[in-house]
């Protein structure tokens, strides 16, 4: 059994190793600093990691700020729209339209109102993170089980109480999906926003490397971005499993039956 497992482990390693080797061979044959191989990238990572980690810190802080702004505004708004059916159904096409607008396209407009400082970047990130949050929250609270509303009525809850104690918890599983998408897009957009509205952060670091023709350094930064993205996405998934254990438990027992 253990032999079988270790053999499976090896076979999982074969493809990445082959690809890395092929890349290295191509880089050797090209032998130009504009096409570095994995070795040069590793050297760059070793040389520059304190700087890269510092810059990614700025980026992550901005991504987090944008995400929380979006969550504080969009989740209550989504529940409200789901409750007030008339308003919701009129605004739904507008939301659909905003969802098709790529977040970087709002950068020029944000620039007019908020300049190029931190506020502007956080606004762009909040817009990008806000769309999946409001779509999922609205969808969840709109399609709430009618029984929940009846329970709220028989408990004589007021409208606001219903939204806080019934709608919000019942919508949480779908909001969690929205959160996952929102976190991913906050990370993506924070790098983009930094590149377009430059001051500091990993996006600016990347651009500076490009201007100095340091492709290996740029690829080192990309490697860090991808690791951070991987870790953050994994953390969000774990957190979701832990906080929404009741949801997963109930769906699992349903599947067992």
């Amino acid at each position: 059994m253990s032999i079988l497992r270790s053999r499976q482990g090896y076979s999982a390693l074969v493809l990445p190793v082959v690809l890395l080797l092929a890349w290295q061979v191509l880089a050797w044959r090209a032998s130009t600093p504009l096409f570095p191989g994995p070795w040069q990238v590793a050297v760059s990572i070793w040389r520059l990691y304190p700087q890269i980690v510092g810059q990614i810190g700025y980026t992550l802080m901005r991504a987090a700020a944008g995400f929380f702004v979006a969550a504080i505004v969009m989740v209550p708004l989504g529940i409200l729209l789901g409750r007030l059916k008339a308003v919701g159904s009129v605004l739904e096409p507008i939301l659909d339209m905003l969802a098709t607008l790529p977040p970087p396209a709002v950068v020029p407009i944000v620039m007019l109102f908020a300049g190029t400082g931190d506020a502007a970047k956080i606004a762009v990130i909040a817009y990008a993170a806000g769309i999946p949050l409001i779509m999922n929250t609205y969808e969840a609270s709109k399609t709430l089980h009618p029984m929940a509303t009846l329970v709220a009525r028989s408990l004589r809850l007021r409208r606001l109480e219903t939204m806080v104690f019934i709608d919000l918890p019942a919508s949480l599983p779908m909001i969690a999906t929205g959160v996952r998408l929102a976190v991913a897009s906050a990370l993506l957009v924070s790098v983009t926003a930094e590149m377009l509205l430059a001051t500091n952060g990993i996006g600016v670091f990347l651009q500076r490397q490009q201007e100095n023709f340091q492709i290996a350094n740029g690829l080192a930064a990309i490697a860090f971005i991808s690791m951070v993205g991987l870790i953050v996405n994994d953390l969000v998934q774990r957190l979701e499993r832990r906080l929404l254990f009741w949801h997963y438990r109930s769906t699992e027992t349903q599947n067992d039956r």
Binding site: L187, L188, V189, V191, M195, Q210, I215
Partner: peptide
Amino acid sequence: ALVQPIPPAALVPMAVFM
């Protein structure tokens, strides 16, 4: 898992050269 979280924006400056 590693390539998926890379933002398109980060790829552009490097890819322009290649």
